[in-house]
Amino acid sequence: MIDPVTLIVALIIVSTPVLLAAIGELVVEKTGVLNLGVEGMMIIGAVTGFITAVETGSVTLAFLAGMAGGMILSAVFGVLTQLLLSNQVATGLALTLFGIGLAALLGVGYPGSSLPPVPDLFPASMQAIPVAGPILFSHPLIIYLAVLLVVAVWFLLQHTRTGLVIRAVGESHDAAHALGYKVIRIRFLAILFGGACAGLGGAFLSVARVQNWIEGMTAGAGWIALALVVFASWKPWRVLLGAWLFGGISALQLRLQAAEVNVPVALLDSSPYLVTIIVLVLISSDRARAALNAPAALGKVFHASG
């Protein structure tokens, strides 16, 4: 009924936009900044990426444009929260509301445009290998980059001096400031990185996965990414796990709908969101583990006095 190999292939593709956005947000939150604008940055990335792909015919440029779009929007968040010391929750919400509106505006006239195909990284002969071929070798470059990014972020945070500084800023900005680290500069750079990741995730969604532009097409992926960071207790590896879990549920429910199983469509449609909520509850109910890794300065405004 449901072929496990194609399910795993779909899982990997569906999870990639969320994975990219979540790993970016993880770095942002590690510096102590809560950016609730992931959904807005993703959808801006989706529309700028799509427009660039249609206009230039280059997939590479499209992904770069998606990154740039997400980054520009995140810069607005950076200016407001870091330089003008605004409330991070409110500003993040504003980013999402504005991003969805602006993306719809930019995308007028683009739905249904034809796109250049996204090339696969490995040759067709390797993709023909049974089971391993479709699962491991049938994807475009971005999917491999997304997994590599998780490894890179893990290494950066855990094994480098830069990672130590990032974590220090996120744990206590006052202490980091007293040690002479440029808190605002570090946070601003992290915010830009988060924006680029979310934008790339959005561009992957529109250019590679759906291959179309639809208003509001991220459909909560940005919020799921935010939930994944909490689910992962701010650990990069767990983000990968969470993204695959989400991708698995999404891919499975679509297949179940296609197979017309006797389960209400509303329940299947909302299953990725419900599973995310259930997982969040499980994680946060374990008080010791939830508090252990959360950056202590998360969401707090930093104002250097003196």
């Binding site: 407001l80 003008l84 010391l85 602006l102 505006l105």
Partner: peptide
């Protein structure tokens, strides 16, 4: 003027408001 322009316009208002709060 496309309909989503108004949504972007409303979002912008919130940005300016939060920025001016400083």
């Amino acid at each position: 003027i496309p309909a989503p322009a108004i949504q972007a316009f409303q979002g912008m208002l919130l940005f300016f408001l939060l920025a001016l709060d400083v």
